[in-house]
Design a protein around this nucleic acid. Structure first.
Length: 825
RNA sequence: GCCCGCUUAGCUCAGUAGGUAGAGCACCAUCCUUGUAAGUUGGGGGUCGUUGGUUCGAAUCCGACAGCGGGCUCCA
């Protein structure tokens, strides 16, 4: 009976064994150095996809290899369980979100277990569970208490398909990031978190995040969009109102020939009132406002403007300039008004041409170049002209002086502008954390007292796609009494953005069963910040920015010491099939369950880690999976065939080894050295696996020697090292073979192997011989040969003689242990 | 328009102080089984995107250019 690789049996056996022996549960007591390895938790959508398999495989290699290095590793898993799909399932299929979510969690948990990931399941939780969202509510009140949560009426993004408002971060290029529907504007009273209070720190402290990819940091910096400039307050002819603008080019202020305000600017109504073409202007404004954001801000959309009939006054030269309403001015950025300087801004130039506005040059190049372009704006810095007392200054000097002048005269001054806006957290949906606020006729807005938490989400509600939360119609939820005066009151019916749930979930893992607080400071401090965080780059702004914000706030108010959530971040690439991201709509999805059923978890994991470096995209390949499977079989046969021979062989190395044994040890120890640095220094798992494959090839070659002439001690050492370095990648087969070799303790409790540096050194070295930089020959010399001796050997070579004959040797370059280059003329 | 990444064998990708271009898959041959399936050993195959430069020597460092991919963008 052939002993074949039966992954079904092996994987089930060890998964059960690991679980029953609590192999991966954290021991809080021990005094080993701690390591917190975390992958982004999944939304329980129903089934795992390859992206999940990839991120969790990467995390598991890190967790397992760190454990082998002697760390006390925290490697938890939980569920990001609030969200729209659950509610949509309720509307479409009549399944309650609670039931839908929990049945998905059950299924996906089984899938994760079948993949053999080393999670400490004792720390599992779901964000939709009251024992979790109680603390999400507590944290909302914490922010409220510190003035960081507030309610205001504002023009907000509305997704008609999701039937809820969205934060700015959740609108990508004008589209809802979840469903790609064009976002609309709505004027609503909503709850916000004051993330803009932290704008400077969120930007400046990006530098602290040394273990983060530059790309992610650049995206966050871009999003925060800090811009240093000047505020200039223009007057309005015939009105007391002022018209402030923000500009980064105060040096061009003498070139302002018009003003443009956004159609949603608060002064629009006042300015156009009583104009003879008021109706026409109103129609124009209405038309622009009816457009969705993408159309309006598209590069192709024509810039349109209309004169209001009013004039602004330039505070520096008292010139009167027309005020226009323009479609290209965004109401929400800066002051919603811009000064038009057609001579020195491309957009203004095009606009001025179109509407016959004046072009007034106030900056000239410092060095006048011949054939300077006419007919377009000069946008670079230069020297001021026609700018009153500032004429003759360079742009740089003028920016400072003009800003200072404005400040002194109370007409403006330095100003910092941000693109980042406060985080809108209200959602008009059911399946989320209720906002713990009560509205009382007498007392106004009243936070729910801590002892009354959690505000439970009612289960008995009706799901209809009405565009408002089912909670609105749930009278027993809405009607309550005021915690302050006891009088009749209404509950807030909006729920929180689910990104709040995930902005602190990494803290909950450190103390998941706490019933007194979200987490004990002592426990959080023992683990935070997360040493290695792993997830998709699609969260570069949203989740990663919000989490940084939360952590800063919590650190500021003494909840935790660490002020950054994640020390290092690994942004893993996508899983592609035929060059495109796997998606149901494209029909190019590979089902992980099928792969695991057909080849086993070890093969699935090995392939996915071998096919690409973690941070790069991965092209799915059925042949590649087949190859990984064959490799595991190759390891299996190798070890199984040796087991009886080497099981009882002593481990100590004999003093004298033959040349083939020394060669095998060189391969083995050299491989372990490379694998060690690939895993721990570079997270280069694909090359580590490649080195393991070469190691196996080396073992097979040694196996060709007749058994009687093999040194089984060397073989035993080689095979044990092979299994140890394989353990983080293919944990089941490594464990099985480890035990077959006679070990009784888990391979996942072993220490990472040290390698014998001396054994990695070759005794004979092939020296490459170059003549004028071209490879002409190679010679074999003993390791550590003297430079002069090598030189002599090389020059004595017949091939070298041929090339050197009749020529002068100009120079001989010797790289010890590697090559000799003879330069001839 | 700006920023980032990539370009190496038929395919997917390594190449870590500039010094012999490499793994896996695929392909061909070999042997073993020759009842499939699997397995063993060996082999072919690359002007390292193009082009200048630095160097004794460049896939590697520097400068242009091209192609592909990603991110940001009427942000005043």
């Amino acid at each position: 009976m052939i002993d074949r690789y039966n992954f079904h049996e092996i994987e089930a056996k060890w998964q059960n064994h690991w679980e029953s022996t609590n192999l991966y549960a954290q021991q809080e007591k021990d005094n080993l150095p701690r390591y917190y390895c975390l992958e982004m938790f999944p939304y329980p959508s129903g089934r795992l996809h390859m992206g999940h398999v990839r991120v969790y495989s990467i995390g598991d290699v890190i967790a397992r290899s760190k454990r082998m290095q002697g760390y006390n590793v925290l490697h938890p898993m939980a569920w990001d369980a609030f969200g729209l799909p659950a509610e949509n399932a309720a509307i479409q299929h009549g399944i309650h979100p609670h039931k839908w979510t929990w049945s998905n969690i059950d299924h996906m948990k089984q899938e994760l277990k079948k993949l053999g990931f080393s999670y400490d399941w004792s720390r599992e939780y779901a964000t939709c569970d009251p024992t979790y969202y109680k603390w999400t509510q507590w944290l909302f009140l914490f922010l409220y208490k510190h003035g960081l949560a507030y309610r205001k009426r504002a023009a907000v993004n509305w997704c008609p398909s999701c039937a809820t408002v969205l934060a700015n971060e959740q609108v990508v290029a004008g589209l809802c990031e979840r469903c790609d529907t064009a976002a609309e504007k709505a004027d609503l009273e909503q709850w916000f978190f004051r993330i803009t209070d932290y704008a400077d720190r969120l930007l400046d402290e990006l530098d602290k995040l040394e273990g983060w990819p530059e790309k992610v940091k650049a995206m966050q910096a871009n999003w925060i969009g800090r811009s240093h400039g000047t505020e200039i307050i223009f007057g309005i002819e015939g009105f007391d109102d002022k018209l402030p603008v923000f500009t980064t080019r105060p040096d061009t202020v003498f070139g302002v020939t018009y003003m443009v305000i956004a159609p949603e600017h608060p002064l629009v109504g006042k300015l156009i009132a009583g104009q003879e073409n008021e109706a026409e202007i109103r129609a124009f404004v209405k038309e622009i406002l009816s457009q969705d954001e993408i159309t309006r801000t598209s590069e192709e959309t024509e810039k349109k403007g209309m004169f209001t009939g009013r004039y602004a006054v330039n505070p520096l030269n008292n010139e009167q300039i027309p005020i226009l309403i323009g479609n290209y001015v965004v109401g929400g950025y800066g002051t919603g008004a811009v000064m038009g300087v057609p001579a020195h801004d491309h957009r203004d130039f095009a606009f001025a041409k179109e509407y016959g506005l004046l072009v007034k040059t106030v900056i000239v190049p410092e060095v006048v170049t011949e054939g300077a372009k006419t007919g377009e704006a000069y946008v670079d810095d230069g020297v001021l002209t026609g700018s009153g007392q500032f004429t003759g200054l360079t742009s740089q000097e003028a920016k400072e002086k003009i800003t200072a002048h404005l400040k002194k005269s109370g007409q403006g001054g330095p100003k910092v502008n941000y693109r980042l806006r406060d985080w809108l957290i209200s959602r008009q949906r059911y399946w989320g954390t209720p906002i713990p606020i009560v509205y009382c006729e007498k007392c106004g807005t009243v936070p729910v007292p801590e002892e009354d938490l959690p505000v439970l989400l009612p289960t008995d509600v009706e799901f209809r796609p009405t565009g408002r939360s089912p909670l609105v119609d749930c009278d027993e939820f809405v009607s309550t009494s005021c915690p302050k005066c006891g009088g009749p009151a209404r509950r807030e019916t909006d729920t929180m953005d689910t990104f709040i749930d995930s902005s602190w979930y990494f803290l909950r893992y450190t103390d998941p069963h706490n019933t007194e607080s979200p987490f004990a400071k002592k426990k959080a401090d023992a683990w935070m910040p997360v040493d290695q965080y792993i997830g998709g780059v699609e969260h570069a702004i949203l989740h990663l920015l919000y989490s940084r914000f939360f952590q800063m706030v919590l650190a500021d108010y003494g909840m935790v010491d660490a002020d950054i959530p994640f020390e290092s971040l690994l942004a893993q690439g996508m899983v592609l099939q035929d060059g495109a991201k796997m998606s149901k709509s494209k029909g190019n999805v590979v089902d992980p369950d099928r792969i695991v059923a057909q080849y086993g978890a070890d093969t699935a994991r090995l392939f996915i880690l071998f096919a690409s470096p973690p941070e790069r995209d991965l092209e799915w390949s059925d042949e590649g999976v087949e190859g990984a499977y064959r490799f595991i079989n190759r390891v299996w046969r190798l070890v199984v065939e040796y087991v009886d021979l080497i099981k009882d062989v002593p481990r100590d190395m004999p003093e004298e080894l033959g040349p083939r044994e020394r060669e095998l040890r060189r391969i083995v120890h050299g491989s372990v050295k490379k694998i060690t640095s690939d895993i721990f220094d570079r997270y280069s798992f694909n090359t580590a696996i490649s080195a393991i494959m070469e190691l196996v090839n080396g073992l097979y070659q040694y196996k060709d020697i007749p058994t009687g002439k093999q040194d089984l001690g060397v073989v035993r050492e080689a095979i044990e090292l092979l299994l140890l370095v394989l353990a983080p990648f293919t944990p089941h087969v490594a464990e099985e073979l480890w035990h077959r070799l006679g070990h009784s303790e888990s391979i996942h409790r072993q220490l990472w192997p040290a390698y014998d540096e001396a054994a990695t050194k070759a005794e004979e070295i092939t020296i490459v011989v170059q003549v004028n930089g071209k490879v002409r020959d190679r010679v074999v010399v003993p390791a550590g040969s003297e430079t002069e001796a090598v030189k002599e050997r090389v020059l004595a070579q017949p091939r070298v003689q041929e090339y050197v004959a009749n020529k002068t040797i100009v120079k001989t370059v010797v790289v010890p242990g590697k090559l000799v280059n003879i330069v001839v003329k």
